[in-house]
């Protein structure tokens, strides 16, 4: 199970970072989403991987750490909200500039080049 979880986290991070380095906004957003999935699974595993144990301290003794689960919930809520925001931002930017590039409009252009557009 360790191998499975670890390789899932690794794979999602690798794909996420690759997509993040793209030029257009859509792959970047997908990359950020994959990164947040990877980090959620990673946080979850910070409480150690155990099977079939309750997240409460019981008389039986064995239990799984509930705190990482609470942390993951908070992280999911925040990353979900952030993803929604960045999607809206990318859409607005696309509608206003009619292209999907992630650069700042009007920057890095010589005045003549801007006049030509």
């Amino acid at each position: 199970m360790e191998l499975l979880v670890a390789s899932a986290v690794g794979l999602m991070t690798a794909v996420g970072v690759y997509l993040l380095l793209q030029r257009r906004t859509f792959p970047i957003i997908i990359g950020l989403t994959l990164l947040s999935y990877a980090v959620n699974v990673f946080l979850f595993s910070a409480g150690r991987l155990v099977v079939n144990l309750p997240p409460i301290i019981s008389d039986a003794g064995a239990y799984t750490d509930p705190l990482p689960q609470a942390l993951v919930l908070t992280a999911i809520v925040i990353s979900f909200g952030m993803t929604a925001l960045i999607v809206v931002l990318a859409l607005r930017s696309f509608l206003e500039t009619e292209n999907d590039n992630a650069d700042i409009p009007g920057e890095d252009l010589a005045p003549e080049a801007e006049a030509d557009r």
Partner: peptide, 17 residues
């Protein structure tokens, strides 16, 4: 404005990372 949206996207993306 378009410039703010473009810069805003970069700002949000770097902070999400």
């Amino acid at each position: 404005g378009a410039r703010r949206l473009g810069a805003g996207f970069q700002y949000v993306a770097i902070n999400l990372v």
